[in-house]
Structures are given as structure tokens and as C-alpha cells.
Write a protein that binds this DNA or RNA. Sequence first.
DNA 1: ACTGATTTTAGTACCAACTACTAAATGAGG
DNA 2: CCTCATTTAGTAGTTGGTACTAAAATCAGT
Lengths: 190, 190
Amino acid sequence: MAKYKKNERQEILLERINEDPFLTDEKLAEIFNVSIQTIRLDRLELSIPELRARIKNVATEEVDKIKSLSLQEVTGEIIDIELNSQALSLFIIEEGHVFEKNEIARGHFIFAQANSLCVAVINEPLALTKSADIEFKRQAKLHDKVISKAVVNDMDNNNASITVESKVDGRLIFKGQFEMYYSNEGDNNG
Amino acid sequence: MAKYKKNERQEILLERINEDPFLTDEKLAEIFNVSIQTIRLDRLELSIPELRARIKNVATEEVDKIKSLSLQEVTGEIIDIELNSQALSLFIIEEGHVFEKNEIARGHFIFAQANSLCVAVINEPLALTKSADIEFKRQAKLHDKVISKAVVNDMDNNNASITVESKVDGRLIFKGQFEMYYSNEGDNNG
DNA sequence: ACTGATTTTAGTACCAACTACTAAATGAGG
DNA sequence: CCTCATTTAGTAGTTGGTACTAAAATCAGT
């Protein structure tokens, strides 16, 4: 139970609280075998907020994450659109979109961006994907900015044919040919 | 500022706290134009925990949600697998997977299930989707149980050809032909 | 209008987990 | 031994409550 020096203790304290933000000063005092006051002094010096504030931070952060996830109804941000003609979207690959081990984007997000764009470019209340021919040309990695471009080739008889190309740094990573069904009845998309 | 009756107030209280768990009794008292004691009585009757407990729940629960999201590396639960041959997975359509307005599953989740299954069935450290031909036969709706079956047609020269069929209640909703690249180097999938 | 029950307020004591502050005790180095 | 840094102790005050008692207000039925 050798006590740490101030420096050491504060370093480890930071780590510990990072690992588990739910530790009270009391427990931390036990862990480091010092008084509560010392822990409080440490937190003050390191400007680590108190337990409740930490918990609240965790809670609000996670709430934000959930919100941003439900925003993913349309994957990617539409940056230019000419209805029934063509559209452009940007999708930034974040932690949630990649495989942990190799940081390669999961294919379905790339697909989702393209698919969402197809739905968006069609100016009708109902738009469903009927079929698609897709090709993954190269991998997208964490933090890549994927630009997707959809071009409507033709639209008639409630069917639209759309070509999508997705690029990272100008290099093609994905290409897809989408056949969509649309209708002015119904209320939404798919 | 007509005051609600007890029943009404408690119903709305529940909703309010569900929407925003960060409301103190004090603020709730203001909102409903009643005393703090009344709010506390209400919470007691409805067994709604106090603010701090609520926040803590959000913090811990949402951490779990994030974890379950990373579990979605494989979308759907694999229920049977014969490596390099065939596999079966179940994917239950939940709130997060559908368009709010019409409760139709977003296509990319259906695609993701199929794609993940292809990755899983290949018993190699690296498996990437090269291309796919897919067809959405009919819509999947909220709470549907989608059963996906992948059959490996052939594997050679680091390329696998896989057919996937997804069904709800025995009816085909999705069919896809996947061409995968695999390798025993690298460490993961895509 | 009166009564009895229901609902709402008020008020007190207590709790956890603190902050902010003062002050005393303990170390460690020169 | 003296001194400065570090640690500990202790007090008062805060937030957002619980648990409890009791009074006041409101409502419902006769």
C-alpha cells in the first residue's frame, strides 16, 4: 500500500476516472489510500468535475449519439439536389460506421448513402428500391469523406433508373445502378 | 393555465419525463403550476425515480446501447452456420430500422443483414464485398422477423459467389447475388 | 349546505455528494 | 531545525432529493 506521489497519483486518477466516471470521491480516496480532501484537491487541480456532473455529461453525450443515429434516416448530408435529375451527398465515416479492428467502413453504410440519395432525388411521396447492381471498388476508411452522386437516367411508368457513383478524394469507391419504383400515392419512401 | 386533474397530469408527467429525463421536480412544478410536493407525490405514485437516478440510468443504459450498436457489426443474429457453405440469420425489424412515417424497413438494413451473413459464412480473416445484384421483392415492416439464408455457390481463387434470400413469414422479400473477395491475410472483414 | 374523502400544500428532519473555505498536521529537502 | 509543499481535518452552505406529519383546499355525493 505504498502511497503514490502527488504527480503519479493525479495521472492515475485521470485514467481511473476516464475508465469509470462513476467513482465517488470516497471510493477514490479508498483506492489511493488518501483522504477525501486530497482527492478533491486533485480534482480541483486537474479540473475534473464532480461525480454528478460527470454522469450528466455521459448521459447527454450518449443522448446526442442516439439522436444523431436517428438522424441517419437519410445517411449522409445532401449538398446539392436537382429533383428528378441529380443529387450529391456527403457522408463522413465515423466510429460507428467502421469495423473496429481495421477501420474499414461497413459496406452497408456506403450502400445506404447511395440508396438514400436515390430516394431523395425522386420528387414523389413514395419511392422504393426495386433492385440494384452494386460494386465496391475500393474500401472507405474511418474519417473518409464520401461524396456520392446520383444521376437519374430515366423516369417513366413509375420506374426510375438511377446511376450512383461514390468517391473519396476523387477516387471511385462505389458504383451502383438502382431501379426505383415511385408513386404519388402513399406517403413516404424506402 | 387551467390546472390538469391528477390523472391527466400524471400521464403528461410520464411523457414529459420520458422525453426529457433531465427535468428537476422544481421545473416540473413550474410546468404544471403545482407545488413541488405534488410532483413528488406523483413520482412516488408512478414510481418514477428521482432526477439523479434517471440521469444515471440514461448514462448507463445508453452505454449499453452503444455496445449493442457495435454488436451490429453483424446485423442480425446468426442462428445456423456451416462455414464456407451456408448460413442462416434472424433480424427483427425494430423502431430504429424503419421509416417513421410508414414503418417500412429501410432497405439498407435488409441489405446489411444479407451482406453481414455473407461475411460471416466465409471462414477467412478478411472478407470484402466486391459486388452485388440485389432485388427488393416486397417491403418488410416494423416487428417483422426477417430470416436470411446465404448459400455459397462456389469458392476459388479468393473469390466466393453467394446467393442470399431473405424471407418474412416464408415470403421472399429480398434476393441477392454477392461476389466476395476473401484472403487469409489481413485481420477482418467488410 | 354539510360531510367525508381526495388532493394539494406546507413544513421539518435527514441524506449524498459535493463546493468553498480555513486551519492544523505532516513530510521532505536544504 | 526551519520552511515550503502536501495532506488532512473541519465547518458552513448547496442541490435535489426522501420520508414523514399535518394542515388546508377542493371535490363529490347526498
